[in-house]
Design a binder for these strands. Structure first.
Lengths: 202, 202
DNA sequence: GGCCGAAGTTAATGACCGTTAACCCACTTC
DNA sequence: GAAGTGGGTTAACGGTCATTAACTTCGGCC
């Protein structure tokens, strides 16, 4: 986890601005000229860096799914054998992502259908692995929870954690640390309720 | 709550199909010809029923926000004075909506920015009132919870409850009743955790 | 100092799409 | 039974937009 100090490449600038714009107005809602303008070049100039508008979206979505999964796997490896701590770690990681990369989180579950078949399959596969990773951990912490219920709970908690972008513009939140803490408690509370409700049924 | 038995009007058919298509591929992603085809008429025929594509989206979004708020207010009036029961009632109502009108729920927080200024303001106002209604109830049940935290929690729980459309196509769920029950428990658990974490701080 | 490739530029192309125009029926209604 | 109207139709228009073509600029590099 080395901090990058070098300047972002033009390619990275473009991806970042494209993510923001796509999140704000939808993939079909922004034109290439706008994306170009956001990084100080004009529309067709983008084609020196990407094969097309689709390619930008694809790279963004694959990147997000990959990062989430990679981060999740890393946490599994680091926190060996303690499901409680691991669940906390996963939650923390997801919250960091949701709070620090809002546009990406928004895109993630919104524009998947705009991808070419092959890219979409790849993204879905990465997403599925990430979910499975959570499901396993959740079921270790709450052994009474059946798999379908665990999976649905994980999806629901993702919805909860990803809700921050919908909060009426940055101002309304109680500060980043407090927000992260609140989200963490909400997520744990939700899982706990699911686990308790199902106890003794296994 | 009288059940409608008469056939839906052409207008209602159009709205329903438009909602489904907008939810699937985004407002800009579907053409009027497609919407027309979905109800058996051809593109421009829609203009006998709506002023334009924008008007359909506007009517959908205003309708959703209005229904949610109206339903919420009704529950407040019906369940007088018992905050616990009222919170359960609100959760139940929202779940019914999320499970029965998936496309609308999806649209609700996704395409708001595609509206004319005036419509957008109206929808936002309705949404805000709905949130405030929940916030009040939540704070009665958990008096220790500060208002910003309560508001953030409510938003987060909406994200949780609205997560069902993201579940990989209808099959994966454990049946409608079980799903509703699970979501209800998850939501209550989340609120409880938020409330407990803040107790004694008021 | 001439070459070259990377990174831009503007102009043009072609597709798509929302909307309007002009026309057509099948009912109802007096 | 003539008239009007609600609900369609197809064809055309105009704008937007992704993409391509053709051309420029400029910083290394042998």
């Amino acid at each position: 986890m080395v901090a990058r100090t070098d300047a972002p490449t033009r390619r990275e600038q473009i991806l970042k601005e494209a993510a923001r714009l796509f999140a704000e107005r939808g993939f079909h809602g922004v034109g290439v000229d706008e994306i170009g303008a956001a990084v100080g070049i004009s529309g067709p100039g983008l084609y020196r860096h990407f094969a097309g508008k689709d390619a930008m979206l694809a790279e963004l979505l694959v990147g997000i799914s990959g990062q989430l999964l990679t981060g999740g796997k890393r946490r599994v490896a680091e926190t060996d054998g303690d499901p409680e701590a691991l669940l906390d770690s996963l939650i923390e990681g997801h919250i960091d992502f949701a709070l620090d990369d809002r546009p990406l989180i928004t895109l993630h579950d919104r524009e998947l259908d705009r991808l070419r078949e092959s890219d979409r399959k790849l993204v879905r596969q990465l997403q599925r692995q990430y979910v499975e990773l959570w499901v396993e951990v959740v079921r270790k912490v709450y052994p009474g929870l059946a798999e379908p219920a665990a999976r649905a709970s994980v999806h629901a908690v993702f919805g909860l954690l990803n809700s921050t972008p919908h909060l009426s513009r940055p101002g309304a939140l109680p500060g980043r640390a407090a927000t992260a803490d609140l989200l963490h408690r909400l997520a744990r509370g939700a899982f706990a309720a699911a686990g308790e409700g199902a106890e003794g049924l296994s």
